[in-house]
Nucleic acid binder design. Structure first.
Lengths: 369, 369
DNA sequence: TTGTAGGCGTTATCAG
DNA sequence: CTGATAACGCCTACAA
């Protein structure tokens, strides 16, 4: 027996039923157009709902059908342009059908990530999107795998972005290949003393980019001594500090690669502050190709990661038909040379040609993978 | 009688109760620490919950107490740095107590805004934050006011950012004052032929900034003919097109003010493409002072809007004690002169001193309001 | 301090 | 095709 009291002020299905002179079930069916309802009643119901301004309570719906018409997105840092782009890519495909997209921010802390995933699970979202690098911590990966498999057994869908130690469908940019190509690009320009502003060691992204870079440098017979690598935190400030530390430890660097653009922009800023001309005195390159990379000065050479596409593909993965096997979508990355890098002035003419692609207006591109 | 079946796979309060050998109510009380529970039972419950990996179903909670421990945020464009900053400001204060923050994106379409607000309302979020300019459409304002008042009557809280034709607590940046100050700054530099890349006419933000600008120019005895104003859409592309149109209609402009930074950055790009030196040939200024404004080239002169603070204050408004009267928090804006603006070369020495503040490293500041 | 018995708004099942 | 009725998982008087 419904009390009929107005509760939180919103009309309920019961109110509509009463006004239309039908049962709750009929209202539900008419509105959700699941089962056939006579044209006459349907119209009555529609009109009643209209005049009452009725809209269903999502919680009650979610509870009753134990599934929420929403999709949960977990990002490491929602103010990082990298994630903003991924999110942008997700929004279109995710919002079809009036689905809500719920975003939360973990500040790169595994415990928070775990909490949010659990929250989304108990909230019974349709799909869960983990956008952001995985953690190297395998024990954490195991815990998350368990959580996620439970979610999937219950009918939920999951898609990961990046390389995780978590079992599940994923879309992965070719970080390793992109870093390799960037290493080649830098050495082709004649650079031999190259510094790196790295990211948190706990992230697989950091690991992969570093690995690719190493491989590229090794092939060119170049060492990467420890003092040429500093750890940043993927923020602009991290880039500022990173370049400072680097120049202290190794003042003779001719090129610096930052493992993301945001830090590279910080480095650009610090270089200017110190009166170091980029690229004349020092080449600086980034990673990601976030939208502003082309607008800073000098325009940033970087490795393009298809962030928006990654987001869109992840949504497709999570919303498409359930695959029988774990799927991995691999996306290529691409070196984009703008003006923050230049041939090394100090270098004796390199045996390798400086340019491997024909000159094109604006930027030269070297696709990876 | 609970079936005890595992439902969607997640343990329920019932499972915990059984394992701990107590009643559901005791579990609820122990976990939500509302009422006193004997230490012994509380421990048993906690342990049972722990081993089961129990986490409450938010929908059931929301349904039972008809209130959701979440706060809904409506933004116009989640990839616009302006909103990213506002969001960043909200996150800290909003997330205390494990609250979820749900963000949705309206693409500046009033109908979607209305839909989302209604959705959040029926979802019974604790608070609703409308972040973004209001619409000039008063009829829309009336509809939203009704919706929002219903929400508030039901116990919800609302905070608006910007000037809306909606009744409710709000935090408002001094757009009008900032634009006025920027007009003064530009005329002080000797500029008399000033172009404007405006925003969508439907937004109050556009209106206010334009008004302040007009007032400033009028005071300096300067006209703003129609052909000196083009309408942009607050995107980078809009800025590119905007500058093109402007230069076609009035090639003799010496300064251009874009009504947001994102468009100004587009304009900077277009100027470079055309071989126009900024600021030597043309001064360009923006509005907002988004984080990258200082990193583009040349560093952008702009009107600083305290976006993050706006976000934080809005959260305070919405989460703090319910005020008896409508509250309006007014936040000052501030002109920041960097290198994208310079004295007008063509100008005969102006009677007004070029600089009104002492020179300072990096930027000069003129606070509004 | 603890347990029992609704109720929150909707959907699904099962008779009519 | 329509209408009762029982879940869905949790909370909260009320009773013990």
């Amino acid at each position: 027996m419904k009390t009929g009291r107005v509760g939180a002020g919103a009309p309920t299905i019961d109110d509509v039923a009463r006004l239309a002179g039908v049962s709750e079930s009929t209202v539900s069916r008419a509105l959700r157009s699941s089962r056939p309802v006579s044209e006459e009643l349907r119209l009555r119901v529609l009109e009643a709902a209209q005049t009452l301004g009725y809209s269903p309570n999502p919680h009650a719906q979610a509870l009753a059908r134990s599934e929420d018409a929403a999709i949960g997105v977990v990002v490491h840092d929602s103010s990082d342009p990298y994630f903003v782009e991924i999110l942008r890519g997700m929004l279109g495909p995710a919002e079809v059908g009036g689905r809500m997209v719920l975003v939360c921010d973990t500040q790169r802390r595994p415990d928070r990530e775990f909490q949010y995933v659990r929250h989304f699970r108990s909230q019974r979202v349709q799909a869960l999107l983990l956008a952001g690098s995985g953690f190297e911590d395998r024990e954490f990966g195991a815990r998350m795998t368990a959580e996620i498999q439970a979610f999937e057994r219950a009918g939920g869908r999951v898609a990961l972005i990046g390389r995780h130690h978590i079992l599940g469908d994923s879309v992965r940019p070719d970080n390793e290949g992109g870093a390799y190509e960037m290493a080649r690009a830098l050495t082709d320009l004649g650079h031999r003393r190259i510094g790196v502003i790295s990211g948190p060691a706990s992230l697989t992204t950091t690991h992969d980019r570093l690995t690719g870079l190493q491989r590229g440098l090794n092939e060119a017979g170049i060492e990467l001594p420890d003092r040429h690598v500093v750890v940043g935190d993927f923020t602009r400030d991290g880039g500022i500090k990173g370049l400072s530390q680097l120049l202290e430890a190794a003042p003779d660097l001719t090129a610096v690669l930052s493992l993301n653009d945001v830090m590279a922009i910080g480095a650009l800023h610090e270089a200017r502050r110190r009166g170091i001309a980029v690229p004349a005195d020092l080449s600086i390159a980034g990673f990601d190709d976030i939208p502003v990379a082309a607008d800073v000065w000098p325009p940033l050479s970087t490795v393009r990661v298809p962030m928006a596409e990654m987001g869109a593909r992840a949504v497709e993965l999570a919303l498409g038909p359930r695959p029988t096997h774990v799927q991995i979508v691999r996306l290529p990355t691409e070196v984009i040379l703008r003006k923050s890098t230049a041939p090394c002035r100090l270098s004796r003419p390199s045996s390798v040609p400086v340019s491997r692609a024909g000159p094109r207006p604006g930027a030269r591109r070297l696709t990876s993978a």
